[in-house]
């Protein structure tokens, strides 16, 4: 019940777009020119530095080790993790009004969980159930018109926004079937470990796929924090719009005034 009340309060705060600024004043969101306000920049930079240290000491070495495993193993792990994520994607497809996609993803889940042996293999893609895009509660709130609120950097979990971070709490209140059967319910087949292992592996799998890109970005950035923030927010926008079209996700007017030849 406490969880529910907390989530409700957070949503109400998001919907009205009112948040305490860093100086403690309650004010309307300062979201201007399509930019996400970094209300907690000082704190965010501190958490970002902590995450970087954690990455350097633990996550990157583990990701490097993970990459030494056979690619078939990594592919199978990645497939199984994607399959688990469908239990969150499908209800969000429905809530976003995308019933057709919800049906397609449900079929994908059934095929890969059975014929694909718990999602390790991906036979669904071979029968036309491909182009899977993850959806989460934050994306659903965005499609309902809820503003993203301020930018946030979470310890360990990394970049987020107030909307996305609070929406993710739904996963722990019945909104994630995988969490329900591992952590919330005492079943014979799964334990808490399975859930946390899957979360950890998702992070390691992502990091392993991006070792060079991350290092390269860090080396060539004059403000790495700002680069990561920009990339995260661009990625969220793209995912919320469910579009690969550049013209849908980018404002071309900025380019129009640049004349050089």
């Amino acid at each position: 019940m406490k969880k529910f009340v907390f989530i409700l309060i957070t949503y109400l705060a998001l919907i009205t777009n009112c948040f305490a600024d860093t100086d403690g004043n309650i004010e309307m969101s300062k979201k201007t020119n399509g930019e996400t306000k970094d209300c907690f920049e000082g704190l965010n930079r501190g958490v970002f530095a902590f995450n970087q240290a954690l990455d350097q000491i633990i996550i990157e070495p583990v990701a490097k080790g993970y990459r030494l495993l056979p690619s078939a193993f990594r592919k199978g792990t990645s497939n199984a993790l994607n399959n688990i994520s469908l239990v969150v994607t499908i209800p969000n497809n429905v809530l976003q009004g995308d019933i057709g996609l919800a049906g397609k993803n449900s079929a994908r889940f059934v095929v890969n969980s059975t014929i694909g042996i718990l999602g390790i293999f991906d036979p669904a893609s071979k029968i036309g159930l491909n182009d899977y895009e993850k959806e989460d509660w934050g994306q659903t709130l965005a499609t309902w018109g809820v503003g993203e609120g301020c930018y946030l950097v979470l310890p360990v979990l990394g970049p987020s926004t107030l909307r996305d971070a609070s929406a993710s709490l739904i996963n722990y209140s019945g909104g994630n079937a995988w969490y329900n059967i591992t952590v919330d319910e005492d079943t014979r087949y799964f334990s808490d470990f399975d859930y946390y292992a899957s979360r950890g592996l998702t992070g390691v799998d992502f990091r392993a796929k991006n070792i060079e890109s991350f290092n390269n970005l860090e080396q060539n950035s004059i403000d790495f924090y700002a680069s990561v923030k920009s990339l995260y927010l661009q990625d969220r926008k793209k995912r919320i719009l469910n579009s690969d079209e550049i013209i849908d996700t980018m404002d071309d007017s900025d380019w129009e005034e640049i004349e050089t030849n």
């Binding site: 680069s227 990625d235 980018m250 030849n261």
Partner: peptide, 25 residues
């Protein structure tokens, strides 16, 4: 004389990232 102005990798614009980085500084 066509010229490249931006690289958009998986939907993420490098020029935009660079601009936000510079503006942050």
């Amino acid at each position: 004389n066509p010229l490249i102005r931006d690289l958009i990798i998986e939907g993420l614009s490098l020029a935009r990232t660079q601009r936000e980085e510079f503006n942050s500084v």
